[in-house]
């Protein structure tokens, strides 16, 4: 019996001790892990037919709307946002110059930032603008405290002219790419 257990110990030592060697490992490297995905999504768009713009009796302002917009100030987003870019695209096929303003408002309705876009008369006018936030751009706090967005559309032309295009309209699209640090 004694020999048996001697043999047993020897075999276990052989299998787990002699054979199992390992190079030096540094598990603290795990703390260096950086996960920074870029998330992309459309934000909002406004599309107005020229006939609608002409029909608004109030001269100048054909649209004004303030709406709740919470994606930026959600805790998960606000705490992890590193930088971002909002891309605006404009297509104007109407006969009149248009101005669009985007106002970023906090929860109390205070204006945090305003983007003003002057859009030349169409048809065939297109433009894009990238607005960066974070490194080299506007303060990130504008985004992380934005709770509402106000969109204003101004007709800088008249209420009579009609574009030669078959379906004239002003289109504003917007999308964002944000860099997050998940870890």
């Amino acid at each position: 019996m004694k020999a048996f257990f001697k043999c047993l110990c020897t075999l276990i030592l052989l299998s787990t001790g002699v054979w199992s060697c390992s190079e030096e490992q540094d598990f603290d490297q795990f703390d260096d892990l950086s996960i920074t995905p870029t998330l992309a999504s459309s934000l909002f768009s406004v599309e107005a037919e020229e006939s609608f713009i002409n029909s608004v009796p109030v001269v100048n302002t054909f649209y004004s709307n303030t709406f709740n917009f919470d994606p930026f100030n959600e805790n998960f987003v606000a705490e992890r946002l590193l930088e971002g870019t909002i891309n605006y695209e404009f297509v104007n096929s109407t006969s009149k110059p248009i101005a669009i303003t985007i106002e970023f408002l906090d929860e109390a309705g205070n204006i945090l930032d305003t983007e003003i876009f002057d859009i030349a008369a169409g048809p065939g006018f297109t433009a894009t603008r990238d607005v960066t936030y974070g490194t080299g751009g506007k303060p990130l706090a504008i985004l992380t405290t934005t709770s509402q967005i106000r969109v204003n559309g101004f007709n800088l032309g008249d209420n009579m002219s009609v574009s030669s295009e078959s379906d004239p309209r002003i289109i504003m699209n917007s999308a964002a790419e944000f860099l997050f640090r998940l870890e």
Partner: peptide, 20 residues
């Protein structure tokens, strides 16, 4: 999802709605 999309004149009655 393409974000909040406002079409005029169709959505002119949605002023004040919680679009988000």
């Amino acid at each position: 999802n393409e974000g909040i999309n406002i079409f005029l004149p169709e959505d002119i009655d949605d002023l004040g709605a919680d679009l988000w």
